[in-house]
Each structure stands twice: as C-alpha cells, then as structure tokens.
Design a protein around this nucleic acid. Structure first.
Lengths: 203, 203, 203, 203
DNA sequence: GATGAATGAGGGTTCATTCAT
DNA sequence: TATGAATGAACCCTCATTCAT
C-alpha cells in the first residue's frame, strides 16, 4: 500500500489547484492566494514547495508534460505498424485533454506565452514531445507509408498545431462536441495527405 | 484624398509600438510606459487614444484582424476555382506573418489568452476569420472537390491550427527557415487529404 | 533667485521625513509608508526618487554625511592654530547634532549597523570623516603640540567615539542637558591628555 | 556541584548561536531559523526557551551584560588604588571583547538600536555598567587623583564611548590590530587629561 | 492636445510564531 | 521535550491610471 508523505500530497494539491486556477484566470491574472485558497492551504505554504509563482507554473508544466512525454514515448518506441502508432499518439494526446481539460488549457495556452523566461523551461519538454512525433513521421517514411517529399519536422509541427487547435477549440467551447471524433477526422486527412502514392493499395 | 489628422498618426504610432512591445515582452509583462517610450509619446498620451491597456490590445487586435479579415474575405468572395482560393487564402495568411512577424506573434499568442475579457473581443473577429475558411471548405465540398464526410468546421479549425503553429514556430525560430515553402507543403497535405475520391483525375 | 524644481523639493521632503521616521522607529521597524505619510506623498512617489528603502537610507546618509564632511574639511584645511581647529572640529560636530538631533541619531546609530550592504556605502564617507580628524592629530603632532607616542588613528577613533557617545546620550536623554558644555569638558581632557610634555608652558 | 540540566545546555546553545548569527547578519536581518540551524535545534525549540525573537535578544543581552557587570563590579568594589582599578576596568572590558568578538559586536551595536522596546531592557543594565564607571571617577576625584571640575557622568560616558568605538573598529577591521595596546594608549590619554594638577608628582 | 509627476491599490513574498505529532 | 510543516499578517514595490500644468 503506497504511503505518500504529507508533503507530497500537499505538493500535488497545490499543483492541481494551480492548474484549475491558471486555467480559469490565466497565469498573470491568477493570484497566488487564489491558488492557495483553491488548494486549501495558506499562502505561505505554497512557498514551501515552490520558489515563486513562476516556479509553480514551471513545476506544473514539467510534471505534466513529463508524463505526456513518457506516454507518447512508449507509443513511439512500441512495436506495431507505424500507422497504428500515429493513431495511438494522437489518441493519447486527446485522452489527456479529455481527462483534464483544465490542464490541457494551461499547457496549450502557456506554451505560447511568447518569450522571456517561460520558454526556457517549456521549450525542452515541448521539443521532446515534437521529436517523438517527428520520429513517427520519419518511421512512416522509412516504412514506405508516407511520401518522402515532405519535411518530417514541418509535418509534425503542422499535425501538432492542428490537434492542439482542436483541443483548444474544444476546451473553449466548454467541451460541447466530440473531441475524439474530430481528432479522428483530422488524423485521417493527414494520413491520406501523407500517403505514399507508390503504394499499390488505395484506402 | 484622405488626409489623416495628426492625432490619427499618433494613434497609429501607439498601435505600432504596442505591437512591437507586446511581441517582445508579452501583454502582461509589457508596461504601458514601455509602449509610450517606443511610440515616442508620454504615458498619459496613450490614454487620449485608448481607454486602458486592455483597450490598447483590443484596438490592436481589431484593427489588424479587421484588415486580415478584409483580405481573406475578398479572396473567399472571389471568382476563381475553389482550390486556387484556398491556396490564396493561406498565402495571404503567410504573407501577413512575413510582413509583420511581431504582429503575427501578438495575434497568434494573444488569441490563446484564454481567459477573462480578452476573448470577448477576440472571439468575434477570430470567428469571422474562421467562418471565411469554413466557407471555402463548404464551397469545395459543394464543388465536389472535397470529401463530404468531414465537418467543414473541424477541417477549417485544423487547417488554421496547422498554419498558425507553423507561423508561430517560424516566429520563434527567429525566422530562420522558409515559411511560405513549409506552408505549401502543409497545404498540399490538406488538399490531398481532403480530395474527393470520386474525382476521376488524380493529382 | 534660486529656483528649485518641484522634484528637488519633494526629494528633500522625503529625505527629511525619512530622517524623522528612521530616528523614531529605527530603519528596520520603519515602514516605507510611514515615511510617505510623514512626507505627505504617496508610497509610490518615494520610488520616483529612490530605488528602494535601502537606497533611501543610503541617500540620506550620503547627502548629510557629505555635508558634514564638507564642513569639517574646511576646518581642517583652514589656517588657524591646530588646537583651535580641533575645537572647531568638534564644535561643528556638536552643532550638527544640536541642529538636527534626529539626523544625528540616524547617522550615529545606522553607522553601527554592522555588516552586510549597509557599510558598503557608509564606510567610505565615515572613513573620510575619520581621515579629516586623523589629519588634525597628525598636524598637532607635527606642530609639537601633541605627544608623538600615540597613534593618530587610534586617537582620532577614540575622540570620535567619545563625542559620538556623548551625542547619542544627549539624544537619548531627550536633550535634557548641555551637549556643547559636556563636549568642551571632554575635549579639554583629550587636549590635556595629548599635550606634548616637552612644551615649556603648562596650561 | 552544579548539574546543568539538558535544557539549560540547550538554552546556552541557542544563546551562543544567536550571538553568532546576530553578529553576522544583524538582529533584523537574522532569521529565527538561522539561529535554530546554528544551534542545531528545530525552529520551534527556540520558543520553548524564549518568548520571541526579541526575547532572545533580551536574554542574550541580560545574560552577558550581567556577567560583564559582575566582573566590573568586583573591580570597582576592590581594594587597590583607584588608578589601578580604572586600568583593570578597561582591561576587563577589552578582554571581554577579545574573548568573544561576536558578542562584543552584538552588544556594541544593539545597544545603539535606538528605538522602541529595545532600550527598555538594555538601558538598566547599561546604566548599571555606566554607574560602575562613574563610581570609579567619583572615587578618583575623592582620592584627589582626578580634577574635580569635570562631571563624572560626562567623563564616564566619554571613556566608555572611546573604548567602545575602539572595540567596534577592531571588530569591524576583522581584528587585525592590537586592541589591548590601543586601549592602553587611550586610557593613558584620559588619565593624563583627568589628572589633578594639584598633585605634586608628575607622571 | 500633450505631458509626466504623482497616485495608491494590489500582490508576491517573507518569516516570526504556532501546534499537531 | 522536541520537531518542522504550516500559518497568515505584514510590507516592499510595481505600474495602470489620473490630472494639474
């Protein structure tokens, strides 16, 4: 039976509260005391676990983007056919958004938060995420499934952008429609659009 | 012939300064006095033209998104074949980013700024932009060019997301690669992926 | 007719208020808003003239210690007999305390404020002050008025300590007794104690 | 034979730690947790022995100033010639500084901390210390050794100020020079300066 | 219209103190 | 007794906004 120390629990509660509050008000409009209240702790307690408000965002980002990266890495490193792995990749992404739309919103929005310090920590993890996707496209080209006259990097970026925008739209629309279905539609477009014309069989 | 009053010029200078400063530091980290210095006016002067810092962002957004919408509307309302119009649509979008990357960054990033009041003004104009794209997809389906088993809204959103992400990546990478070329690649993927399989001729 | 800019006046008012408040509550117990209220300005106004609370203390110190140093330098560089200059030196010091006991208290107390950053700025000016006194002792020895078997540095430091303690006691006692008279007594002790025994005439 | 309880030891350790930390960072800049770490106890433990941070300073002050007062009282109440007792008085003072420079710094600096509550407890003990010195001067005057045209209180204060400043300078200079020697020089100045001119024998 | 000094509310952060274990 | 995680009041400083000139 797992025994989590009190502090670990509290750290998690603070992170969860931060996700909720940042999603609701945005990082800059959110007050640290909002997060504290949401987490049910005193303002000062947050500073026992995080160095600053910004560090709280960083912690939130690294913790969760780390998990996502883990998940997609397993898929990318898996054994099945590449087309199936691409599907799984985006399913995983969609499931993550479905599971915690607030978190999806924060990661999705904050990743844009242009310059300054933010990207100093966001970039590496996002870069890793993208590299996994690039690997898949590479693999697809190597397997003869995808056309080779496109840049995997460009394709990966575009696919991510399309899916991310979908997730954002879904979050903003108060989750009124079927994200997974829309994701499938878009994925199909990409797979068709990338299909190697040399392949004997049409879909 | 239109004669712009001196004050209109100043308004433009302030807006241009705001674009530059917001792109560099982000809306929340930018100070009104930064914008004033960049515009070469006094802090107080900004409040002769805008009600608040937020109103400055609104003005910036409406002015520029308005122009973009005008541009794409002309394309959408134009007479050529739908496939050509789709190409023109994204060319216009890319050209806008190429012409003023700072502006592209601000619009691209701030549009995400989930929360609060922001979207109260961003949504309508962005919605209009999206509707133009949806119209094109609709038109393509009606013309038999595109498959009809996909939701135009979903497709439009995905296409926008892909292109927007490309623009963002390009901006963030300090414009080191060819945005227009990458955009063409991605557009081709979408057009192939959307192509009506009933069409006799393959591309 | 001297025209002081408004800002100069305000800076002076803030400095004067800081002297009063720091004297009354001590630097660390004083709140910036106390100084602001005393000066009749808004909290933020202080930061138009000083970078931080600490900078306010630094400004106060440099401005006033600078003036004191100027005053004693003129005396040290003057032409009269050295014994007379020593008297003038301490008279000047006492007059400064009499003129602005609050200021005397702040300078006297804060100069002790041991380590850290404080002395980074206090040391040079206090060092200058001490050097002026050392010069006088040197001069007295060279002139044959003072014994030469004592270190001018040690003597200067002791004389300063004695006078400073007197000033502090006077300030703390709510100025109930005659500082100038006590100062004369002490000065006489030092002058007798330092007197060159070779001198033919006894006092 | 006195058996110190474990708790008394801990109290002593905390006091010693406080001396060290207060000397290094100053009372206001020192954190209670700094003292706790230095003492090797938990933060909360300090509050088992002291009511507050201020009380810790009070305890430190009373304990040590008490010892000093005891020491000088023995000297003052001793039997030897008054001139010798004066020498012993300041030797004791210097030895105290030499033995524990950190403590000297704290007592020396904090005694100035003008304001508030501080002096409520410092004043009595410092007053006692001064009264011992005043007694000596009185005694010297009564014995015909010192001139009687000076106020013993003033003289005592000045002597203390001179010696204290010397100790402070020595502490601040990282103890680079000979405090005891400098003290002797200064004491000699005072003794010469105070010498009763009626005395047949010159020194 | 234009200025920029002044304002003051607001918020991130610190740290003395408490208390459940 | 001893602990140290938790508390929350306090405070320095920022910066959007105002307004006298």
């Amino acid at each position: 039976m797992p025994v989590r120390s009190r502090s670990t629990d509290k750290r998690e509660r603070i992170l969860a509260a931060a996700v909720k509050v940042f999603a609701a008000k945005g990082f800059y409009c959110a007050r640290v005391s909002d997060v504290a209240r949401e987490a049910g702790v005193a303002d000062g307690t947050i500073y026992l676990y995080f160095e600053s408000k910004e560090d709280l965002l960083r912690g939130l980002y690294e913790e969760n983007m780390g998990k996502i990266n883990e998940g997609v890495r397993e898929i990318v490193d898996g054994d099945g056919p590449v087309l199936q792995k691409v599907s799984q990749f985006f399913e995983a992404w969609a499931r993550f958004a479905l599971d915690d739309p607030d978190l999806a919103e924060v990661l999705t929005v904050e990743i844009r938060e242009s310059g300054k310090y933010m990207n100093e920590f966001a970039a590496p993890l996002f870069g890793e995420f993208l590299r996994h996707l690039v690997s898949l496209i590479d693999e697809g080209q190597a397997a003869g499934e995808f056309r080779t006259d496109v840049s995997p990097k460009t394709v990966a970026r575009a696919m991510f952008g399309a899916m991310d925008e979908l997730a954002l739209a879904w979050v903003m629309s108060k989750r009124k429609w079927n994200l997974m279905g829309a994701g499938s539609e878009v994925l199909k477009i990409f797979l068709l659009g990338l299909k190697n014309p040399q392949l004997a069989t049409s879909d």
